[in-house]
Simulated assay, not measured.
Amino acid sequence: MSTGWIGLGKLGAPMARHLARHLATAGFPLLALDRDPARIAAVPGAQAAGLDRIGACGIVITSLPDDAALAAVALGPDGLIARMARDSVLAETSTVSPETSAALREAAEARGVLLLAAPVSGSTATAEAAALTLFCSGPDAALERARPLLATFARTIHAVGSAEEARYLKLAINHFVGSTAQIAAEALTLARKGGVAWETILAVLGASVAASPLVAYKLDPLRRRDFAPAFSVAQMLKDMSLAVAAGEATGVAMPVAVLVRDLYAAQDRTDLRDLDFFAAILAAEREAGLGEPDRPE
């Protein structure tokens, strides 16, 4: 029942809280590591631990911001994998490149560690609600052992392969999501420029064939013009860049992904960088010469 956790960011923290609560019912702590000790203190039932204690756990879950952070923590002679025991499980939930994931898998296999690529799909709100989606690829035994723990914060778990399939699927889904925001930015700005009221645009969008769970989730904050970051422009630029790189590496032409990445790159160089990625709407409105819309009191 020894379980370790590394990374308590926007998604990692609520995920870890759900898991720590589950472990606490059986009288076990969650051993946690983060560069900010205050984040560990904010997870009831978590105990701060170094890499040696985390590495001694039977199952370790990581939630890190990018490839560089993951490689720094997990790889090398002093990294996490080198400290893990044979037949222990590393469930890696970050959104990273298939190449970095493959490097982790190679190191894990050399050590006898079972690596489960398990990138998480969802927002901070779905993480708080324990309603995330996981795409999992790796040894069946790894998923079988990790599933009860992953299910404490994920509503849906898809087993999609034995190697890096989960990484490709996560990037594909994020391509859809990131591109949707840029399409919405153009489309909604066109309607506003044509004189349609903001409330009317959103009401029609929500009842149209263009509606989706993503659109439905975003409608309320868009009505309030609330662009607080559930997932920021900077984060989406990172993910779209990973998708473009994956296309290049596999010989898949991705002109739309390149365009969307470049749009996020331009927005990332402005004050929109740390806002929600649907702040692409603000960029389009500014380009069209539009200010804030009139809204009902």
Rank of each mutant, 00 (worst) to 15 (best):
I201V: 02
L104S: 01
I59T: 13
P148F: 10
L282Y: 09
H22W: 10
L202C: 03
R53E: 05
E287V: 14
F277T: 01
A38G: 15
F278T: 13
E128L: 15
A283Q: 15
A154H: 10
A163Y: 10
P139Y: 03
Q267P: 02
E99W: 05
D34C: 02
T25F: 00
E199T: 12
V260T: 06
L33C: 02
P119M: 04
M15S: 12
C136Q: 13
G161K: 01
S241V: 11
E99M: 04
V96P: 02
T62W: 04
A41I: 08
K193S: 15
D78N: 14
L132N: 06
L222V: 06
P296Q: 13
R225H: 08
E92F: 11
A125F: 10
P296C: 04
R147M: 07
L64W: 13
V89H: 09
F278P: 03
K170R: 06
R295M: 01
A108F: 03
V113C: 00
K193C: 02
L275M: 10
P139A: 13
G161Q: 05
P293C: 04
E106R: 13
Q182T: 15
I40M: 00
A68Q: 15
A102T: 07
A257I: 05
D67G: 06
A20E: 06
S241L: 13
L116F: 07
R192E: 14
T124I: 05
E199R: 05
E297Q: 15
A191Y: 01
A129N: 11
M240A: 01
K170G: 04
D66A: 03
L51E: 07
A107N: 01
A159C: 00
R21V: 06
D66K: 10
G206R: 02
A265Q: 08
L222Q: 01
Q267M: 14
A187Y: 00
V177W: 09
A125W: 07
I61M: 11
E292F: 09
A245C: 10
R86H: 07
G4Q: 03
A74R: 00
